[in-house]
């Protein structure tokens, strides 16, 4: 353009700005509240099989996160970001990783620690390098090791009495094949075990037990286009590659926090790669690490640490698989 004067050179008054130009029309708050909504089926299921304590634990965890978020905003003298739903989401997800028999005050402490040390210190939503809920869980594992690993309950539809139980992966870790045989023998119908696990009639953390309910929520998010299948599928593939090392591969795939982690935690926008190729490597890494920790590590379940380990690699994966910019001629610049 030869004319560099002040008057607008463009008679059409086109709005000129740098990209991205395509908007989904959704705000962060809308997305976060839709994620929270999609998490509700799993909570309802947990309430149905484990009782009211589950709701108290969840509320305690959410309160811890929201209060900490509010405090961080006050200290940083920024506008309160409670309404965007991200703190509620962190609180929900943290509660979902906890045993249903846990003392109610502990999730409150865990939620506060998670929010302050994962999000607050790094500068708020979008700046955290780790998934907030998972750091909360890891901190609680280090802080309350006994309560975090022993307060499992036997699921019972319509019954209020809580019976303590052991988790499948915990049994395998402790007793191997013999423990598994004993567990199978104790069931009235051994052949339907995989279905019970799929439905959620098993001991485990609050939000992880029902694969069906997790899939219901995930289907909603997929339909709304909030998450894509690259990460969850590649995680499942990674774990499936490790399943043959387990005495019961089918149950192995349906156990632990695998599905919750794959669909709701590994897909966190802030801490996962943005490009499909990066996402696939991210997911495969999580799946393989989960299997390695489960099979040969010190913990019965590894998805929490696997996701956190791969979170560290996210910036590198984004860098390696940066989309090529197209110039006018279509050639990458």
């Amino acid at each position: 353009m030869s004319d560099e004067s002040d008057k607008p050179a463009n008679p059409l008054h086109l709005h000129l700005s740098s990209g991205p130009h395509i908007f989904s029309g959704r705000s962060t708050a809308q997305i976060m509240w839709m994620v929270n909504l999609s998490l509700l089926p799993a909570l309802l299921w947990a309430w149905a099989v484990f009782g009211w304590a589950v709701l108290a634990i969840t509320l305690s965890s959410i309160l811890g996160c929201v209060i900490a978020e509010y405090a961080v905003c006050r200290i940083a003298k920024t506008a309160s970001t409670i309404a965007d739903g991200s703190a509620v989401c962190s609180g929900l997800l943290l509660a979902y990783t906890l045993p249903p028999g846990m003392p109610i005050w502990m999730p409150f402490i865990g939620g506060m620690l998670a929010l302050i040390f994962t999000k607050g210190i790094f500068g708020g939503l979008g700046y955290n390098i780790f998934n907030v809920a998972l750091v909360g869980r890891a901190m609680m594992m280090a802080t309350f090791p006994v309560e975090m690993t022993t307060r499992w309950l036997t699921p019972a539809l319509g019954k209020a009495d809580a019976v303590s139980a052991a988790t499948f992966l915990g049994q395998i870790k402790l007793g191997g094949q013999e423990a598994l045989t004993k567990m199978l023998a104790a069931l009235p119908d051994g052949g339907q075990l995989w279905f019970e696990f799929f439905l959620g009639m098993r001991a485990g953390s609050i939000g992880e037990v029902s694969v069906l309910m997790i899939l219901l929520g995930a289907a909603f998010l997929l339909w709304k286009g909030i998450i894509k299948l690259y990460i969850p599928l590649s995680i499942l593939v990674g774990v499936a590659l490790m399943a043959p090392f387990s005495p019961a591969p089918a149950i192995y795939m349906l156990s632990g926090g695998l599905w919750l982690g794959a669909f709701f935690m590994a897909t966190d926008y802030v801490t996962s790669p943005t490009q499909p190729r990066g996402q696939i490597i991210f997911g495969l890494g999580i799946g393989l690490l989960t299997g390695i920790i489960r099979n040969w590590g010190g913990y019965p379940e590894g998805i929490c640490y696997a996701i956190m380990l791969m979170n560290i690699l996210t910036p590198a994966l984004n860098d390696w698989f940066r989309p090529k910019r197209l110039t006018a001629g279509g050639a990458p610049s």
């Binding site: 402490i109 620690l113 901190m139 280090a142 802080t143 309350f144 090791p145």
Partner: peptide, 8 residues
């Protein structure tokens, strides 16, 4: 109950 994490 003290927070075990702090001494780790």
């Amino acid at each position: 109950k003290p927070l075990l994490l702090v001494v780790l």
